[in-house]
Design a protein around this nucleic acid. Structure first.
Lengths: 341, 341
DNA sequence: TTGTATGCGTTATCAA
DNA sequence: TTGATAACGCATACAA
């Protein structure tokens, strides 16, 4: 390579990195040679010599959930600003795969690792990353030894409930699997909103999971009730759940959405965009979470892992108003004027 | 590291790779040191010295499409059998990102690269990969200078049409954007089935795209027709399209699915799993495509890129029968007894 | 401004 | 069975 250009190896390095000043003539010679040989820099050798890497790794628990893909997008964009690339690894809900991929990224000595892991058992995953900075994404719980970014599910639940209440709904039904931490948080927010509004009644219906089929059962239940006992507003803990409610209500009763029953979901999943009645929902701040995660990573990268003070960043969800809670007028993303907490 | 263990650097390498025979005592010493220091092998140095890598790269055009995620799963599983890891890069429909990530993987000197690219402009993307084996995935067209794996869309269309015909449908409507190559192929298969069955009439309705909203328009059209002019079987070029048809027909008419109108989609998208009436569809052989792609890659890896003979592998889709085409009886994956071509 | 030498962490070869 | 040493392709510091 240096031979082809007729210059020294150090000079080549200089034109490649713009380290020192190089004559226009020599630069041209080198660039000629690059084109002729189709030279591509060897990242392995580069990061070995330079002692740093230009890629970040993101271990994602479930890529089929568009929420995590949104996080990846946000992270990718923020990383790009610093010239960093983002590589993804899909752990597909498997803990062993999570370990494998974290290990892989550590072996590759990537600049930093993002982990979106199982809520249950991720507590020590980041410890595998000897020396490589890690940020846990969407990981509830106290983390004093690692940075993390989480969505504010409590405020999200609050937003959903307040929206229904402000539109005159007085009998709310919250449906969801409260065994799941995020669902529990959302319920907490709903309860807070209800507590702030005397006269509003809240009912909670447990579901097994938060899938479409669970929602259908909830919808069937609601559809069968007498008018007096029927809620006029349903908050589903997830969009898929809401989708099931909607299907069941629309097909097995003459109830109208939103006139007889306002319905709001959670997540702003792609799956919910195209429902028969467009679904109001609470949008997860996916891209923002990704962005903040990368920022934390860079922060730790600069200050050095040793003297770095770990912290948790919370991102706020936003209300998305569509047809399932109000009429045609004024659909769109609501102002986020309701401050969290 | 070698110092910590009190042995030589070469010995450490031997116990790590099991290259040469090592005394049980020295092995123990080394393993002690590994545990003590929390040693993790440096992949950069490894692939630099060994001249090969243990990871594959997959540049994916659109991770929000579950089809590509299926391909990734298949590829990951097959790669795992050989001890290779699969890293993902989401190019999000952007050609420049595709280039960026292909370049990145080449720089990293991964063992091989899988590319799922835009149908239009991917024709020379693999040329960027100087020396690194590439397999194009889901890339229609003639590729004499690169291996590729494609689904058999013609046969898929044929399967869908034959299914409706065998269940007594005589007036078929194919809806889709035939500007898209895969859609055109599916239509070709449908036409073939119709040609084989005298008495069956085929109508083609052009759509702008293959999204839910396009499907709604088709559904509205069908719902408004008089009985005599109405098709009794609809083949939608994609599941989202079918979803739109279903929504519109169910909500704006009294037509029953499948009694009055049989409906079949294409892709087996997640989005279609949970529709009000479960959607019959043609399942893309996603995992198989990923598997075959990795096999081609390994093949090229063994024979050497020079003497390698590039080829194209075709994977067969499968009919998935759900409630939208027949009654409750016999739902499930049909036998694939209908041979392609 | 350009060339030269050293080292990054590992494998692989050969000598001990 | 083990130790020493030369690559691998690059950055970097220093000499020319």
């Amino acid at each position: 390579m240096a031979r082809e250009a007729g210059v020294s190896i150090g000079t080549v390095s200089n034109v490649l990195n713009g380290t020192a000043r190089v004559t226009e003539a020599t630069r041209a010679k080198v660039e000629m040679a690059i084109g002729r040989l189709g030279f591509v820099r060897n990242a392995s050798a580069w990061s070995l010599a330079a002692g740093r890497s230009s890629t970040l790794g993101f271990v994602i628990i479930d890529l089929s959930n568009s929420y995590f893909l949104d996080i990846a997008r946000g992270a990718e964009r923020e990383a790009g600003k610093t010239g960093l690339n983002l590589l993804l690894a899909n752990s597909d809900l498997s803990e062993s795969k999570q370990r494998t991929y974290v290990d892989l990224f550590v072996e590759e000595r990537v600049a930093g690792i993002l982990i979106a892991a199982n809520h249950g058992s991720d507590q020590r995953l980041h410890k595998s990353a000897r020396g490589v900075p890690v940020v846990m994404v969407d990981a509830p719980g106290d983390h004093t030894d690692v940075c993390s970014v989480v969505p504010d599910n409590i405020h999200g639940g609050y937003l959903a409930a307040m929206h229904l209440i402000e539109h005159g709904r007085r009998h709310l039904l919250f449906a969801g699997a409260t065994a799941l931490v995020p669902v529990r948080d959302r319920l907490t927010g709903v309860e807070r909103a209800v507590a702030e509004n005397p006269g509003v009644v809240l009912e909670v219906e447990q579901t097994r999971d938060v899938q479409v089929e669970d929602g259908r059962r909830v919808g069937d239940d609601v559809a069968l009730r007498r008018t007096a006992e029927r809620p006029d507003g349903v908050i589903a803990a997830a969009d898929l759940l809401a989708l099931g409610v909607l299907q069941s209500v629309l097909l097995s009763s003459s109830l109208r959405v939103p006139e007889d029953l306002a319905l709001i979901g959670y997540d702003d999943n792609r799956a919910a965009w195209d429902s028969a009645v467009p679904l109001s929902t609470v949008r997860q701040p996916g891209e923002e979470i990704g962005l903040e995660a990368v920022r934390l990573l860079l922060e730790e990268l600069e200050t050095g892992t040793e003297s770095h003070q770990h912290r948790m960043v919370t991102c706020e969800p936003a209300l998305v108003v569509r047809a399932s809670t109000i009429g045609q007028e004024g659909a769109g993303i609501a102002s986020t004027s309701l401050a969290p907490r």
